[in-house]
């Protein structure tokens, strides 16, 4: 399968594909969570995934770095197909950053150690160098003064920004976000979205699951609408919000906007 196949379901200009999903199916026991998903994400593209609760959004992006294992279909990340080969998986994971809804920082490590862990142990960088990069990243997400603290001493918004810095420290080619602001108090959402906006501006390839419609409209190159394990509609931001093709999309948008 060619990984440079252009998107056939949108009017996007063809870019190099970073993520390619073809006919991805996933079952949890008898329950089918993904029912044949096709999706392409080009280089430097920002794709936002929308959909009602339980529609399989998290399952899809967790399949992309193999936190979940799909049973049928093909997923390619940066031209490499996801198989059961362990080293293959570790390599892909180190190139795909993931930010979780509940942050999942390591509570026994300081903020700085959380960020340098991956570069030192996976990228085999020297500690001094890793710490320098970590400080730059903390600067970028706006909390350099928290470096020595432990995650339990930070606010939710600060924790999520550390989580983003931790993912970025691996110099990933792709960033996945699974509802990064859903566990945050309203006043902290903005600070996290600012960081993500900045990332998008710098040309990071991103797949974002979010319920923040305003933010989605602003940063997304394309929007994907999922329902009960299927992709119902994919479109550019403008087309998606102003002229959705599918009935189910219209209904979803009318409920949420």
């Amino acid at each position: 399968m060619s990984s440079t196949k252009p998107n056939d379901n949108t009017g996007q200009s063809p870019r190099r594909n970073m993520i390619t999903c073809r006919g991805v199916k996933k079952w949890f026991g008898d329950f089918q969570a993904l029912k044949g998903v096709d999706l392409d994400v080009g280089e430097q593209e920002v794709v936002v995934v929308l959909g009602p609760s339980g529609s399989g959004k998290s399952t899809l992006i967790r399949c992309i770095n193999r936190l979940e294992v799909h049973q049928e279909g093909i997923i390619e990340v940066d031209g490499v197909e996801l198989t059961n080969d362990l080293r293959n998986i570790e390599k892909i994971r180190s190139e795909v950053g993931m930010v979780f809804q509940l942050f999942n920082l390591f509570p026994h490590l300081s903020v700085l150690d959380n960020i340098t862990l991956g570069p030192i142990w996976v990228r085999k960088k020297a500690r001094v160098e890793a710490e320098k990069t970590a400080m730059e990243l903390l600067e970028r997400v706006g909390i350099p003064e928290q470096a020595a603290k432990f995650p339990g001493q930070l606010s939710g918004g600060q924790q999520q920004r550390v989580a983003i810095a931790r993912a970025l420290a691996m110099e990933p080619k792709i960033m996945l976000f699974d509802e990064p602001t859903s566990a945050l108090d309203p006043e902290m959402i903005a600070e996290v979205l600012d960081v993500m906006r900045d990332l998008a501006r710098r040309g990071m390839t991103m797949v974002i699951v979010t319920h923040e419609m305003g933010f989605a409209r602003e940063v997304a190159d394309r929007l994907v609408f999922m329902e009960s394990g299927e992709i119902v509609e994919v479109g550019t931001t403008e087309q998606f919000f102003s002229a959705p093709r599918e009935e189910r999309t219209k209904k979803f948008l009318s409920q949420i906007l």
Partner: peptide, 12 residues
């Protein structure tokens, strides 16, 4: 979540 975060970083 700790296992997932560690996996997502590519730790063995």
């Amino acid at each position: 979540g700790q296992y997932e975060a560690a996996n997502a970083l590519g730790l063995t």
